[in-house]
Design a binder for these strands. Structure first.
Lengths: 144, 144
DNA sequence: ATCAATTCGGACAATATTATCCGATTAAAT
DNA sequence: ATTTAATCGGATAATATTGTCCGAATTGAT
């Protein structure tokens, strides 16, 4: 469904949000540890999330990553997916046709509209805060 | 959503089905032409579909590919996806966790169940015949 | 001022996916 | 029998994704 980079991005964002909820900064090392991801690769992905305005970073000693309260409640899983994988999954033709549309549909065009809508609806309506809360309560997991 | 190989596989299957509906065999060259795909790569994909029992092939002069009536009505888009991409999209955790389950869920586990069910439902219930019919009537397209 | 802990950025490496090429095989047509 | 048109299978190449390494820059602590 998503690229590896995107999976790491979502997991990292949720972990960072959880830490930010108790005013703790998350370091790259901590994050990679807690979401079981390759450190250097995760570093690149976090930089992308910073540029996309989803998380913030602070350099130097006692630095790390965080997500402020506003971003936690307004930014969604869909925002993360778009930042890392682009919006292809939300808008591209399921069969890879460039000019597929309602007036020139591929054979599964109508079928895919429903799937895509469901996907978009769910990811658009799921804030980072919402999913981080379950993690905070120990009800959900980010590794293994 | 799907790999390129899988997109070509679905488009090829639909084209072959349309041809088989009027008892015409589809050659590799024709198929690549009609679905706008790279010839040699398409060849490999068609071989996979043959091995998966979704299409049949006949070698030698006047050879080509076809899908018999039974397969057209019983084989689904889901079968094609599974043959080429495997069943990861239907069963794997959206965040890439190996041990994600209802008892040890990732933070978006419940949200994804709905998406996955919708996807599986739609692809499982869509036969090759059904989508090929629209193409036959000139209502849908397989290239561009 | 120096050191230590951290993110940033660029180059590089490994792996997976996509794509090409060509000879071998098959089977119909001549 | 030979030629021709087609799929099959293996090797190889190109590109994209995933992953590593390391020095530079930044900032707090000593």
């Amino acid at each position: 469904m998503f690229s590896k980079a995107c999976e790491y991005a979502i997991r990292a964002s949720i972990y960072i949000a959880r830490q930010s909820m108790t005013d703790k900064r998350a370091s790259l090392i901590d994050i990679s540890q807690e979401i079981a991801s390759p450190v250097s690769f995760t570093s690149k992905i976090l930089q992308q999330l910073v540029k996309a305005g989803i998380i913030y970073s602070i350099r130097g000693q006692n630095g790390g990553f965080g997500i402020d309260a506003a971003a936690r409640s307004t930014k969604t899983i869909a925002n993360i997916v778009t930042a890392i994988d682009g919006d292809a999954i939300f808008i591209d033709c399921g069969l890879g046709l460039k000019e597929c549309s309602s007036t020139q549909p591929c054979p599964i065009h109508q079928k895919f509209i429903g799937i895509r809508n469901e996907l978009k609806l769910v990811l658009d309506s799921t804030s980072i805060e919402e999913v981080a809360s379950g993690l905070k309560d120990g009800e959900t997991y980010l590794k293994r």
